[in-house]
Nucleic acid binder design. Structure first.
Lengths: 335, 335
DNA sequence: CTGAAAGCGCTTACAG
DNA sequence: CTGAAAGCGCTTACAG
C-alpha cells in the first residue's frame, strides 16, 4: 500500500500538496495537480480512511441502528430491502458508507458510544422501539440522525414516515364510495407512530362523513397475520357485524381474508377488506388485496437527504421538519 | 471526548498502560487495571477506532459487497433480511461491524480499493454476478472473503450455498413418490450457481429412478413469476404435457400455479407443483405451495464463521471448503 | 501556489 | 508489570 509520503516523493512535491489535490484540488496549480493525479493512478495510491478520519474527525460513514433483536423472532419489516437499497444509493451519491452497527450489551449509551468511537457523521434508525433509552439518548445528543417510521425528534434529529393518517383516509373513502357504512378497523399497536396515525385517519374520515363508529369496531392487532384473523373473527361475531374492514397492515388483512373464508363469507361481497403496505403478497393472493401503498424508495432517499442537510448545516440550525411521504390506493379484488 | 492521554493522566499511569488494560488486560496488574477501568467509566473514555485502525491495520469491520445495481429494478433476494440479521448477529459476537459499501464507479478494483482504504478485515459478497471483474479481483487478492450463493473461490475465499442439487432431488423424489412419471422443470439461469445445481439434481434423481426426461421438459426461467407462467404455458401445450413440474424458485412456482389455473387445470390433481425457497407467499397462497426450504439463518452464521476462521488463521492456510446447507421439503397443497 | 511542522489518538517493540 | 518513544498516514493552519 503506497502512502501519501511515497506518492509525494514520487512526484517531487510535499505531502501537503498531495493532500490538497485530493481534498481541495481547486487550490493547486493545474500542472502539479495533473502530475500528482497521474502518479497516483500509476502507483495505485489510495488514501487511508482511518488516517483521514483521525485527522478530520469525519468518517464519511453513517451508522445504521437496526434493532434486529426483537422478542418476536421472525419479525420482518414490510420492505426493508427497498429502504436499504434506496438509502445506500442516495448516500453513495455523497460518498457516504453505511455502517451496520453490531448489537452489543444494551447499555443506554451503546449507540452514542458507537458514534463516538467511529466518528460517525450521522445515524439512521430503523425498526427501533420508540421508548428505547439508547435511541432517545442518541436523539438528544445532537448527532445528526433520522428515524424511519418512528416519531423521533431532537436538536439534530428528524424522521420520515408515510402519510399514515392520509392513507387510512384513502382506504375509508374508498370503502365509503363503495357504499359501505359499517366499517371496522384492525389497528396496529397504539403507541405513537404509524399504528396510531392510521387509526386517527380512520376515525377522521368516518367522522368527516358523519358515519358512526361503534367502539367495538376498533380492535387492536400486532401487524401479524394471526392477529388479523382473530380480530376478524371477533368482528364477525358482533350483533351488527361490519360489512368492511380496514386492516392497518397487509398481513393482518390477509388474516382477515382467511377469517372471512373460514366463516363462509364472500370477499368483497359479504366483507370488503383494505390493507396497508402493498406487500408482494397483496398482488398475488386471490382475489388480490386492495391496499394502501407506501413510497418505499422514498423512505431511503428522504432519509438520506435529511441526513445530508443536517450534516452540512451548522450545528445550531433547526433540523428539517418531519417528512411525510404520500400514499396511494391500489384497488384490487378485496374492496 | 476524553482521549487515552487524559485518562492516563487522570489515574497517573502512562498511555501504554491504559492501552494495555484495553487490549491485553492479563498483562497488567490487577490493582492498576481496576484503577484504570474505574477512571475510564468515570470520565466516559471510549477508544477512538480510527486511531486504533491506523495503528493496527485492523478495522474490526467486514465489508458487505451487495450488488443492488441490477439492470432489473425491483429485484429482491428471497430472504436478504434474514441473512443480514444472522450475519450481523454472528459478527457482533466477535465484535465485528458490517460496512455496507457505497457503490461508485464500476472500476474493476472498486471493491479492493474499499478494502484497502478502510482496512477491512474481510468481505462478504451477496447478490453479485459471478463474472463481475470487481468480484473476481477481490477473490484473487487474498482478502478473506465469503460469497453467498455464488461459487467463488480463491486463496482466501470460499462460499456458502444450499444443497441445491440435494434439494432438487428431494422435490423430484416427492413427486415420484406421489406417482408422477412425467415431470418437467422450470430451471433458473444456466450459469454456474444455484440454478445449475438445481437442474443437475433434478436430472440426477430422475435418472436414478430410470425416469426419462424429454428435452422439452426443461425450460429455463429467470426466477420471476412471469417466466414461470410462460414456461408452464409452453409445457402444457406439449403433445405429452407433464403431470408435475418442479420450479427452481417459488416465484416461478406461483407463476406455474397461475398458468395451471388459467388453463382450467386443478392443482395438484391435473398438475402438481413444487417450488424452491419457501418464501412467505408459499404458506399463504391457496392451496399452499409445496416447496424446498433453505436454512436462511444458516447462510449468515456459516458465512460469519468461515470469515472469522479465515481472519484468524495465518495467510498461507487454505480457506475452508465451500459450505453446503441442508434443505428441507415442506409439503403443502400443490404436490 | 507550495512546504515544513505539528497534531489527530492510538499501539507496540524496546528497556528496565 | 510499567514507561518513554517511535510510528501508523493523513490534514491543516502558518509562513512564505
Amino acid at each position: 500500500m503506497a502512502t501519501i509520503r511515497e506518492l509525494a516523493r514520487h512526484c517531487g512535491v510535499s505531502v501537503a500538496t498531495v493532500s490538497r489535490v485530493f481534498n481541495t484540488p481547486e487550490v493547486v496549480s493545474r500542472a502539479t495537480r495533473q502530475r500528482v493525479e497521474a502518479a497516483a493512478a500509476e502507483i495505485g495510491y489510495l488514501p487511508n480512511e482511518s488516517a483521514r478520519t483521525l485527522a478530520t474527525k469525519k468518517s464519511n460513514m453513517i451508522g445504521l441502528v437496526w434493532d434486529t433483536d426483537h422478542r418476536r423472532s421472525g419479525w420482518r419489516h414490510p420492505f426493508l430491502q427497498e429502504i436499504l437499497v434506496a438509502l445506500k444509493t442516495a448516500l453513495s451519491a455523497h460518498g457516504l458508507h453505511l455502517l451496520l452497527l453490531a448489537t452489543g450489551a444494551d447499555a443506554p449509551d451503546r449507540h452514542l458510544a458507537a458514534v463516538r468511537r467511529h466518528n460517525l457523521d450521522g445515524v439512521v434508525l430503523i425498526d427501533n422501539g420508540s421508548r428505547d433509552p439508547a435511541v432517545l439518548a442518541l436523539a438528544d445528543a445532537g448527532i445528526p440522525c433520522v428515524a424511519l417510521d418512528l416519531p423521533l425528534t431532537g436538536p439534530c434529529c428528524t424522521y420520515v414516515t408515510s402519510d399514515n393518517a392520509g392513507g387510512a383516509r384513502q382506504a375509508v373513502a374508498h370503502l365509503l364510495h363503495r357504499g359501505h357504512r359499517r366499517i371496522a378497523t384492525i389497528s396496529g399497536p397504539s403507541r405513537p407512530g404509524p399504528g396510531a396515525d392510521r387509526l386517527a385517519g380512520f376515525r377522521a374520515e368516518l367522522a368527516a362523513h358523519g358515519v358512526p363508529l361503534p367502539p367495538d369496531y376498533v380492535v387492536e392487532g400486532d401487524y401479524y397475520l394471526d392477529s388479523g384473523r382473530a380480530a376478524t373473527h371477533r368482528l364477525l361475531r358482533l350483533d351488527t357485524p361490519p360489512t368492511a374492514v380496514f386492516a392497518a397492515g397487509d398481513e393482518m388483512a390477509v388474516g382477515a381474508l382467511q377469517a372471512a373464508t373460514d366463516a363462509g363469507l364472500r370477499v368483497p361481497g359479504d366483507l370488503a377488506i383494505v390493507g396497508f403496505d402493498d406487500i408482494e403478497l397483496a398482488a398475488l393472493l386471490p382475489p388480490g388485496l386492495t391496499t394502501i401503498a407506501q413510497d418505499r424508495a422514498g423512505f431511503g432517499t428522504a432519509a438520506a437527504e435529511a441526513l445530508i442537510s443536517m450534516i452540512q448545516s451548522s450545528p445550531d440550525t433547526a433540523p428539517p421538519p418531519p417528512i411525510t411521504l404520500p400514499t396511494r390506493l391500489v384497488p384490487r379484488g378485496t374492496a
